[in-house]
Design a protein around this nucleic acid. Structure first.
Length: 274
DNA sequence: AAGTAGGACAACCGCAATCCG
DNA sequence: CCGGATTGCGGTTGTCCTACT
């Protein structure tokens, strides 16, 4: 006998969430907090399984989410972190305030992979593809173990050839990149550099958060709210036929955005209230 | 204008990890 | 310590949208 499914699939709604469902879930969580995802749909009056509710909240409804396209700097950070952490998206996402693992994973699969391939780099190893083909003759894994499979021992990572601008200095020929010794850095050095970078970014976010407590302005601290600059924003169901500002205004009527920062504090408060 | 292909994002599935009685 | 319940995670699939023919 196998394990019980997380929910009774009969009578459970699936597929895209409606605005009404989102409002129900959001209102419920903001009023009651999250104690047990399994009970959330029942108590919130939703015909969804708890897992689905959790996912919807984490990936879409969480008020502290920063939506919109990834900046080049964020992309570079993702590339760097991926070279360290592999496909551990939740760990990568932890370095980005307001980004979800799902968002980063999707962005990686749809954009960054292609970008690296376009640059003649193997997305998994960040090595020039031509070189990888050479190593495919039984030498590849030996020379460049994948972060997922290596045990985190010191290894040479050549991603420093990706400078802070991401692409500017990258040769675009199919693997005509000559590996320079000075570009090779140790695992520890790499980690140190990335952590410094990440902490700078996160500090910036926190500082702007200190200065301005509204969620919409928090988002604008690191990216423009100009929709034309960030086409993906418009793909949210909320944005169909309305501007971003209209959407924010609408949500303001449902929720008090001023209460969201810091979100963790609010949940603690809700917990204590009960 | 209709059909199709590809891209981007949202959502689901199944397994692993963790929690808790 | 054990076993069931719950949550978290990563891979995969589904859906919608847009560009192209």
């Amino acid at each position: 006998m196998g394990r019980q499914p997380c929910c009774d699939k009969a009578g459970v709604k699936r597929g895209p969430w409606t605005i009404e469902e989102d409002q129900k879930l959001m209102n419920f969580i903001l009023n009651n907090g999250i104690h047990c995802w399994r009970t959330v749909p029942k108590l919130a009056g939703l015909l969804r399984c708890g897992k689905s509710c959790r996912l919807r909240w984490i990936n879409y409804l969480r008020p502290d989410l920063k939506r919109g396209g990834f900046t080049e700097m964020e992309e570079d950070q993702i590339i760097q972190l991926h070279s360290l952490l592999g496909n551990r998206w939740s760990k990568i996402a932890a370095h980005f305030r307001g980004r979800t693992d799902n968002e980063i994973k999707n962005h990686w699969n749809t954009r960054i992979k292609k970008r690296l391939k376009h640059l003649g780099l193997d997305p998994m190893t960040k090595k020039p593809i031509e070189q990888m083909e050479h190593f495919d003759n039984g030498e590849k894994n030996k020379a460049y173990p994948h972060p997922n499979t290596s045990k985190g021992s010191e290894e040479n990572i050549d991603i420093k050839s990706l400078d802070n601008n991401g692409t500017k200095d990258m040769p675009k020929t199919g693997g005509k990149i000559e590996e320079k010794e000075e570009n090779k850095v140790t695992w520890n050095n790499e980690l140190h550099n990335y952590e410094n970078q990440c902490s700078q970014v996160e500090m910036g976010s926190w500082i702007s958060q200190e200065n301005n407590t509204s969620a919409s302005s928090y988002c604008s601290s690191s990216f423009s709210l100009d929709e034309s600059s960030y086409p993906y924003v418009g793909q949210s169901p909320y944005f169909q036929g309305e501007s971003l500002q209209q959407w924010v205004d609408n949500m303001d009527s449902i929720l008090s955005w001023d209460n969201f920062n810091p979100l963790e504090d609010d949940f603690l408060f809700l917990e204590n209230k009960q």
